[in-house]
Design a protein around this nucleic acid. Structure first.
Lengths: 338, 338
DNA sequence: TAATTTCTGACCAACGTTTGCAGAGTGCTC
DNA sequence: GAGCACTCTGCAAACGTTGGTCAGAAATTA
């Protein structure tokens, strides 16, 4: 008849191995001791029948699955994708499956989808990629019935939940200080959309400028895309000699605009990126930038979550410092002999 | 006492609404008619209690969840990430959740994780991102108990399963023909790792060269990264005037090497990319490339899967043609007056 | 040999849903 | 006013696990 054969269950394995259902369950879960002899027999039957535990049944009875959800505004842009990658690597190593949920805006309906997910799936935990305002709103909206941690670009209040983060503020500050140390009178800033006013790359830039007593030029706001950097560069005053960009893509847009308008990089103006995306080193001139290790951030974030899930204790925050990568796009200002 | 309140179930809603459990279920699923009056009452109770259906229980009883798995070798590289993004968008719109599973190699153990996933989760379906040899191996390994479709870069045998694809072959051919039409004697190729010998970008390049009777230079093999393109470029003969690269990242690596060695792009040598990544237009000179719409590919792939899940019929393949994007990095060969 | 320990089997109650079947209620027709 | 269809609702059985209790069997120790 070639019947559609049902996937084998614990009962079938028990029958095949000539033991009881409970014994099979004990072998599978390993939580109760079973003699080596029967263990072998059972595993043999498992093998023969190709038995796979039914995740839905497990989740139903135990109330938890071994799935974690990653909630993010985006999955394509560099920082997000790299963080996701890191999370996935660690999750895989720990035997967890990753579910993704994109929340595009802070509309109640959108946030509702995220909370619904957290309620309805029996998740082991959730990770919010909190690089933007939507991420923060999501953090606030999520229920407290499961462990939730965030990966973010700045130390934040954290809604009382653990964060792993990349110190964007320090990155912005360090980069600005470096540019200043080269002799630039001030540093302009083309910013990515920020999570909050007083944190992140922009705030670090502002701090460094304030500390050195330099004038603080108005921030030029852009989105995340290269074209947006290109457009933003129009607002740069003609006497600008250094510009720190919110990310590498913006930087290449800015650099292109500058070059098209007869200003040489880095001879006439220094351009600095942020993130150290793969293309940065190949740019001509090679982009000086601030390396942010997003993959590592993802790993650390999952590590935090795992600690919480397994240890039961809410883990402490985790930080990492960015690293300045000096290449060719930054130099002393013109009219300076070093 | 502040007891840890259990999340409400169908029973609780039923009690609150003063109807039976089954009636609530019917209201929720909507598959069986229920009088408007009771529907209102039930929905009201649902609202009040904040009821969310338990996905595990649904999956258990029905044998299917509304989750689809995306299986890929990578989630960070452009093509993969963009395809994933497209899949997620469509899935979200259709009310499906997306689970990701990374399979890094064709090792049995790795493939086993993918098949385990497909067996143990009660997936509605799965999508394999089949851009590489691992993808193909995964396709072959996956069981036939659920709908599986692939997103790929080349028409392939498809293991009898539906494919949505991007016509890489046509892209490679068109790009090469374009370069040839500019007057170049032949076109060199720096290749990304290929799925199979007789398909994809490289094969399109070869076809075009063969068709025009041009000599076919040895393929220079590289990985996916910009640095790899830079290294690969060392193997380019000094008299090369045109090089087609397997992707944009390789192209910028190649271009940089060339420029460092005193060869101007495009005056001395034309460099062409593939994919049209966001940075391509901002490159100096702006990169001529072949645009592949991966996000759209992802959408189409999910569409195929949905058709299969809902319609029951195995859907036909879906193709899209790449588009040549001519910018500044390609030109007539030197010693040519146009 | 007796006393103890370790393992196994049988059985059952959950977990939160879906769904087939049958019963209750309503309105309509003649 | 009875009969009939019809719509709506409730009951109960599944789905595949986990984990508990209890009793017996087997292996180990005294």
């Amino acid at each position: 008849m070639d019947a559609v054969e049902k996937t084998p269950g614990l009962v079938d394995v028990a029958a095949a191995a000539g033991v009881s259902l409970s014994t099979v369950s004990r072998v599978i879960t390993g939580r109760t001791p079973v003699s080596e002899r029967t263990r072998i027999r059972v595993m043999d039957a498992v093998e023969r029948l190709g038995y796979r535990p039914n995740a839905a049944a497990q989740a139903l009875v135990s109330g938890r699955s071994s799935t974690v959800a990653v909630i993010a505004k985006n999955t394509l842009r560099w920082g997000y994708a790299a963080t996701l990658q890191g999370i996935e690597e660690e999750a895989r190593a720990a035997g967890y499956t990753v579910m993704i949920a994109v929340v595009e805006s802070s509309e109640p309906e959108e946030l509702g989808r995220a909370t619904d997910l957290v309620w309805s799936q029996s998740l082991a935990g959730a990770i919010v990629i909190d690089f933007d305002a939507v991420g923060s709103a999501t953090m606030a909206a999520l229920p407290h019935n499961i462990p939730v941690v965030a990966a973010s670009g700045a130390r934040s209040d954290g809604m009382g939940r653990p964060h792993a983060f990349l110190d964007d503020l320090e990155g912005g500050r360090t980069a600005t200080e470096y540019l200043l140390s080269l002799g630039h009178e001030t540093v302009h800033h083309v910013a990515i959309p920020a999570t909050s006013e007083h944190s992140g790359r922009e705030w670090g830039w502002r701090q460094a400028l304030t500390a050195s007593g330099s004038s603080i030029p108005p921030v030029i706001r852009a989105s995340y895309h290269p074209e947006s950097g290109y457009e933003a560069a129009r607002q740069l005053p003609p006497d600008a000699t250094a510009v720190l960009c919110g990310n590498d893509e913006l930087a290449i847009g800015v650099a292109r605009f500058l070059q098209e308008n007869g200003r040489r990089v880095p001879v006439d103006v220094s351009v600095m990126g942020f993130d150290d995306q793969p293309f940065a080193a190949m740019w001509v001139p090679a982009l000086s930038t601030v390396r942010q290790d997003f993959v590592d951030l993802g790993r650390r974030t999952f590590g935090l979550l795992l600690q919480w899930i397994q240890g039961g204790e809410v883990p402490p925050d985790s930080t990492a410092s960015p690293r300045l990568v000096i290449r060719e796009s930054t130099a002393h200002p013109p009219n300076t002999r070093s």
